[in-house]
Design a protein around this nucleic acid. Structure first.
Lengths: 197, 197
DNA sequence: CGAGTGATTGACTTAGATCAATGACCGTGG
DNA sequence: CCACGGTCATTGATCTAAGTCAATCACTCG
């Protein structure tokens, strides 16, 4: 998010804090901009007639909410805080004006979205892999650092498990197995790949 | 894809046919544009040092390949045809020039990407659901038509199964079960929701 | 009229989810 | 300064939903 934002957009941002269960916006509300999650978790939810609800997105710190809303006049889902949360609103008017004024910015924004699309597709592709071990391998292959052996872990293993679509238990076991087989070696905040230490 | 393309871009497009296993581009090649799949299937693959490969995307008819490449100078993965295939190249130079010349077009492109991001996030969210039946429910809830009861099926049930990340057998059984329970009713190319016929 | 594919159902197996318990660590508030 | 509550990491035992293998029927298409 931060990288491509211009000073003007940043200046216009408005923070808002939410308590658990509080609604940020509802289906049909006029779109006023896009949000960035600074603290806590939110959920985008769509309701069908029968009252059943489907989660469209679970957003945590750093995630962006409803970027498509920039180009629509009303929201097409509800946003609800599932924890105490703090969000930052980048007003649509300012953002769109800036995108028009600054082609560089517009291009950066588009590039960022394109990047996101690819990343999401890769994640989705990973979910097509059934075996836990192969899923981990896929993750490792896609996230190796420049040295080709080290994968830095950004969060906890539990977070990683969520990312991989595994229970944390399954992930622990899988990693333990892989380490036992010499396929990986674990450091504190990283995993090293390769049979050779 | 088609919707937002201008005549100029369309005019500059180049088709290319590929035989199974043929390489469309490789990691490190200069990016020359983005591709649309017209026939067959392609795969975007990344190789790690140990020669293992990770699939980043499986693209079928209608899908777009490597839109992020528009904003990069080299490709970061290999594209290989997994069947006989036909692809259409929209040259980068023309596309970028058009996006610069036509703010409307640029906005439409960006909006399309934003839309895709949301759609992908929703799919990913669906994959977090473990139960087959709940996954189907999620799909139905997200894809109901305007009447709030009918979900049109675009392809075969097998295709849907792939989409849902289920085996076709599992999907057949799940649908059969749901129909038996009166939760859905199946028509030829559609599913009707609701206990009441 | 075969060959190919989708739809469907049956039987069996298994990987991973679930439930549960433990130890390490960390911040914090009395 | 230490006890306590919380979370992460880990491992064990058990269960089950979905994967896998397999067979059948209906269809469409050259």
């Amino acid at each position: 998010m931060r990288e491509w934002l211009s000073a003007a957009v940043r200046a216009g941002a408005i923070d808002r804090s939410l308590s658990t269960g509080q609604v940020l916006f509802r289906t049909g509300n006029k779109t006023i901009g896009l949000y960035e999650v600074l603290k806590g978790k939110l959920r985008l939810v769509r309701h069908d007639r029968s009252g059943r609800q489907a989660i469209l997105q679970s957003a945590s710190v750093g995630d962006t909410l409803a970027e498509a809303s920039l180009f629509a006049s009303t929201y097409h889902c509800d946003a609800i805080a599932t924890t105490e949360a703090l969000v930052r609103l980048y007003p649509k008017a300012i953002l769109l004006a800036e995108l028009k004024r600054e082609p560089k910015l517009a291009q950066a924004f588009t590039a960022m979205l394109a990047q996101q699309v690819m990343g999401l597709r890769t994640q989705l592709e990973r979910r097509n892999i059934h075996s836990a071990r192969d899923r981990v391998r896929h993750y490792l292959a896609v996230n190796v650092g420049a040295d080709g052996r080290t994968v830095a872990l950004s969060g906890t293993l539990k977070d990683l498990a969520v990312d991989l679509g595994l229970t944390h238990e399954a992930l622990y076991r899988t990693l333990a197995g892989m380490e036992a087989d010499g396929e990986i070696k674990r450091a504190d905040r990283a995993i090293k790949i390769g049979r050779t230490v």
